[in-house]
Write a protein that binds this DNA or RNA. Structure first.
Length: 579
RNA sequence: UGGGGUGUGGUGUAAUUGGCAACACGACGGAUUCUGAUUCCGUUAUUCUAGGUUCAAGUCCUAGCACCCCAGCCA
């Protein structure tokens, strides 16, 4: 297999557009314009014949919270690699700490990974599947003199561990006999000792500059109910003692994790080596950071618990569930993950990239419709009150195959308040007194009269309608017939925080200080074109000139959809006007 | 001198491993447009610093600097 790779010619200038269909079929090589450092490692491994050229990755979440966009990066990376090399991808729950984990999270994670496109076939595993094997290996290590039962409590252990700059000192229990250790471990398992009273530790080196190597804990006593193993165990293996061996059991070849585990790699290697089992290669990459949001589980939990958001699936949350409810597509998230790349540099991606990714995807797939968010009535004085003019509008200007629809136009229509200005600047291409604009897909209207209330607010416009489809006018605006309009809730979501780095707070402050008070605006009297009444939950539209919207699957009722704004359209006018 | 990592445009990733710093996104300017959207065209860098080796350095050497991670019986 490796020889075939060597022989395959690498094209000098690969075409910039790669064909996804070729991905699984082709052997690895210089297929893409550039290869990230992980692909380079795998290429080299395969060239060397390591693992018989096999590639097997996994995504190992702990079921103690919901997945967020940062996890999506890891999922796309791991699944993408397996896919690209014709290998396999496992989903494995790292469920070694029963006090923090819940079935609710397990179910949600499975659903989210699947939604994202991760395909694990029949390889859904749990670290808890391996508890018995792990225990046998612990016995093996004790017999080899590589592990011992320690009676130090948490505080004592901390003292014995030393500091970053000073070595630790050996536990007084470090030299127990094999038989004594075996007996103690057995009793720990049997439930003879209370929580925290003893641990099983690996006997490595208390003077190691790497704190993780100073006799790390392999097992701790927790008389807790586990969501899968129930009360079968009262001792649970630690992450370090579990992760590498779980990878090993599953035949993982490349164990990809985030940077903070770099210091743990020597331990990962130590257990595989001492146990003499299949030894996957741990590779670390930089986790995703995004501007205008927070990503830590603790902070996300705080936002939910203290009701700063409506829940884990609040459309403002960076959780997968939140993004789904917002109207993001899996394709957009995958494209985003592809675009941000993967490296070891701790970078922060601009939220604009995520937003661009949905715009790009939705621009292709979302049918167009018209919706007036902040209505201003216009009376077309030359249109009889009982007349309905049907106009034909394309569902997608770039895709005629998506067809057209009929929209009613009557004497009274709503236009966007922002589309009228009494004292308009020169470059304002919309409606102004004495001016005219095109009504999208219909004709041209004029503005002959401006009606105001006592306070001087514009309440109504009057003008005439000209059913002309050839004349050029500078501006085109969207509109909805007043008589036919569907009035419903439209929720405008914006970034949750109003600064790029919410964690950058002065002494005594909190990230909550930077919550954006305008991250949600609910409009209750939005006027939508009548065809939108048929929108099914989960349908997506581009409301022309406004943005992309998603029919909320929870709050929509038959005939009365509720829309969430996924993202606005780019708006160069707003940008220019803002200056 | 505790250890482990990382520094390339506004942002993110490349650079055939010593050979003209490329790609994407944004931003800016322009063209097209019945969405101020989309699309299209153009513009956008003293490679953390200082020395050194070399015909040639982002890449090699030396010395610095900055940032991230590690003292859970969390993962």
């Amino acid at each position: 297999m490796a020889a075939a790779d060597d022989a395959s010619p690498s094209p000098k200038k690969p075409s910039p557009k790669k064909n996804p269909a070729d991905k699984a079929a082709e052997p690895a090589g210089s297929r893409t314009p550039s290869r990230n450092f992980i692909q380079q490692i795998i290429d080299a491994d395969r060239a060397a014949g390591k693992n018989d050229g096999r590639v097997h990755t996994r995504f190992p979440p702990e079921p103690n919270g919901y997945l967020h966009i940062g996890h999506a990066k890891s999922i796309c990376l791991n699944f993408g690699l397996a896919n690209e090399y014709g290998g396999k991808f496992n989903l494995r729950f790292d469920d070694t700490n029963p006090v923090k984990e819940e079935q609710e999270y397990v179910d949600a994670i499975i659903d989210d990974v699947h939604w994202l496109g991760g395909e694990w076939e029949d390889r859904l595993f749990h670290a808890s599947d391996y508890f018995e094997q792990l225990y046998e290996w612990a016995v093996q290590l004790i017999k080899a003199g590589k592990a011992y039962v320690c009676d130090l409590n948490a505080e004592q252990m901390r003292e014995y561990r030393g500091t970053l700059k000073e070595p630790g000192k050996n536990s007084p229990h470090r030299d127990r006999t094999v038989d004594e250790n075996l007996k103690l471990l057995e009793e720990m398992r049997a439930g003879k000792y209370p929580d925290g009273s003893r641990t099983l530790r690996a006997k490595i080196d208390m003077a190691s500059p790497n704190l993780n190597m100073r006799d790390p804990v392999m097992y701790r006593i927790k008389h807790a109910h586990h969501q899968r193993t129930g009360d079968a165990w009262c001792i649970y293996p630690s992450y370090d003692y579990t992760h590498g061996q779980s990878d090993s059991i599953e035949g993982i070849t490349h164990s990809i994790c985030t940077l903070e585990f770099e210091n743990h790699r020597p331990l990962y290697d130590w257990f595989c080596r001492e146990l003499g089992i299949h030894h996957p290669q741990q590779i670390e990459f930089a986790r995703l950071n995004l501007t205008y949001t927070v990503m830590s589980k603790r902070k996300l939990l705080e936002l939910v618990r203290d009701r700063h958001v409506a829940g884990w699936d609040d459309p403002r949350m960076p959780t997968i569930r939140g993004l789904r409810r917002r109207g993001f597509t899996a394709e957009a998230i995958r494209a985003f993950c592809e675009r941000i790349g993967v490296a070891k540099f701790n970078s922060t991606i601009d939220m604009g990239w995520l937003e661009d990714a949905v715009r790009e995807d939705l621009n292709e797939r979302a049918p167009r419709a018209m919706a007036v968010l902040r209505p201003l009535k216009v009376v077309l004085t030359n249109v009889p009150a009982d007349k309905t003019i049907m106009v034909e509008a394309p569902n997608h200007p770039q895709k005629p195959e998506l067809g057209t629809r009929q929209i009613p136009l009557t004497r009274e229509v709503y236009i966007e308040q922002d589309d009228f200005m009494e004292d308009a600047p020169k470059k304002f291409f919309r409606l102004k007194p004495g001016g005219e604009v095109r009504l999208r897909a219909a004709g041209i209207i004029s503005c002959d009269e401006v009606i105001k209330d006592a306070a001087g607010n514009v309440t109504e416009l009057r003008g005439t309608f000209d059913d002309d489809h050839s004349r050029k006018v500078k501006g085109t605006i969207h509109w909805v017939s007043a008589k036919h309009a569907l009035t419903t809730d439209v929720r405008l979501y914006d970034r949750l925080f109003n600064v790029p780095d919410p964690d950058d707070v002065p002494e005594g402050g909190t990230f909550l200080d930077h919550l954006n008070p305008d991250s949600i605006a609910v409009i209750q009297d939005a006027k939508l074109e009548p065809s939108l009444a048929n929108a099914a939950p989960g349908d997506q539209f581009q409301f022309e000139r406004v943005g992309y919207f998603y029919a909320d699957p929870v709050d929509s009722q038959p005939g009365q959809p509720v829309f969430n704004r996924t993202v606005t359209l780019r708006d160069s006018w707003a940008k220019a006007a803002g200056k």
